[in-house]
Amino acid sequence: MSTVSGKEAVSTEKATRAVPDHDPARGRDQAMTAGQAAGGRPIPPPRAVSAPRAWLRLLGSEVGLTFRRPRNLAMLGVLTVIPVLIGIALRMFAGTGGDGTGAPMIFERITGNGLFLTFAALSLLVQLMLPVCVAVVAGDSIAGEAGIGTLRYLLAAPAGRTRLLAVKYACVVVFCLAAVTAVALSALLVGLLLFPAGPITLLSGGTIPFLDGVLRIGVVVLYVTAGMAALGAVALALSTLTEVSVGAIASTVVIVIAAQVLRAVPQLSVLQPYLLTEWWSGFDGVLRDPVAIGDMGQGLLVFAAYAAVFCSIAWARFTGKDITA
């Protein structure tokens, strides 16, 4: 895969020159000396660009690569199609939807108000589809580069491992936001096209204007993004542990499924507040009156805790790791 941006192309030559005497433990030091050794060549000195700008440039190139990969685009496409399918199915079979037991009532609400399709689609996809997509992107971020041998060249750039990791994680967060927004926008459009729109009835029985409802959808999008970003941190940490990206992706998905199974066992209800998956669908607080900030705040704290722990694990592993590929 072509992970070579303009800057890396320059450093490739330096890196290959430095490879012969490779002591893998000192990969980073080598990169530094290689940069100095190549001082005679007409490359712009690293200090010419200020740190934030260099950071942004690296992030830009990473984000560009992520959103140009056909696989990632296909995943976003599937995420966009699912709300359309739900919408069409509900439109066609409206009123015949079973006896109401088992199926969440929120699906019956959709036929009355298109905005509910957004909430329904997000609460459905957040269980497995979105986590799988995030796991693929985040699990691939480091392990994928290591697997095809481009990680060395990335590290040869005078960016430093910490910055590279930060950029990779920021890129994962951007993808999370894009994926959640794709679902929300597609559901919003389909909902408005197929069903009547208007003031929204909240779970508490109150009614809010349409625009207020759209605003609350925005809050939900940010909340779900935060939840996915926490999973992204887990996948990133796993990604630094292996050079086989499928391993990192699969283990992240297994963790998600295991957490869902633990959630379903009533005897283990003690564990529930500590499970990441428990909080993903906790955005129903925005549909209450007054908005239940407490529960969502607690969810955000859990996400932050997961992100902090797993980002620091990823950092500890990645900055001390032997880069052999």
Binding site: M105, E108, R109, S123, S204, G205, L287, R288
Partner: peptide
């Protein structure tokens, strides 16, 4: 208010008006 996952049951007393709202059943 008794919140559930994506549902809520409310009992509202205001003067001589008493409402029981069950969002599950969309019933007031």
């Amino acid at each position: 208010a008794l919140p559930g996952r994506m549902s809520e049951t409310d009992l509202i007393t205001n003067g001589d008006q008493v409402w029981l709202w069950q969002s599950d059943e969309n019933r007031a």
